[in-house]
Amino acid sequence: MTCNEIDKLLKSYLEGETSLAEEKILRDFFSRGDLPDKYKPYADMFRGFGAMASVQLEDRHFEKKWSKKVKLHTRHGRSLSFFSQWYTITGVAATLLLAVVLFVPVKKLPVINLFSHKIEDTFDDPRQAYAETVRALLIISDKINAGTNQMKDLEKLDEGLEDAGKMLTFNKGLKDANKLSKFSENQVDHNNL
């Protein structure tokens, strides 16, 4: 390549109008050792760019460090999402509780206080207390049995309903028999004719 051609290319280069291929021609040209003095600044420029393009991230442990960072980041990511879920759940629960406390009238809330009054024995003699307890339980069991006796009437009702079902089938049979009798009457009339 002649110096004239190089000068033209340099002019385009300074205007930002050269292609990557043309810039490669310039880089190759200026990498030569035997250059006229006027090209010295350009030679420095292209060599400088070339040298800077070869700069590398010189850290042997870069990939290891990155790998550690990724693992740590992932772990944190998971734990954060776990906590954020809990924050959501507890947040909703707290809001509901607050809503109940604020909007439900205090009087309607059942207040159970087991320690409001002292529980006192009503019998001095434990045997008497035992006998009274047995008597009370017998009364309760009697009442329960009386309730179950009434359930027997319900069983009878069920049986009655079953019989009623049978009657329905019988009624259907009667209707069919009626149809047959009508058919027989028609036959007789037909014969008479």
């Binding site: 205007e15 930002g16 109008e17 600044p41 420029m45």
Partner: peptide, 21 residues
């Protein structure tokens, strides 16, 4: 914008290098 700024940058570097030379 890229072409204009690239041209300015190249000219500036070249000017400084010519001066230094």
């Amino acid at each position: 914008v890229i072409r204009v700024n690239l041209s300015r940058a190249r000219k500036k570097i070249k000017e400084q290098l010519v001066k230094a030379h």
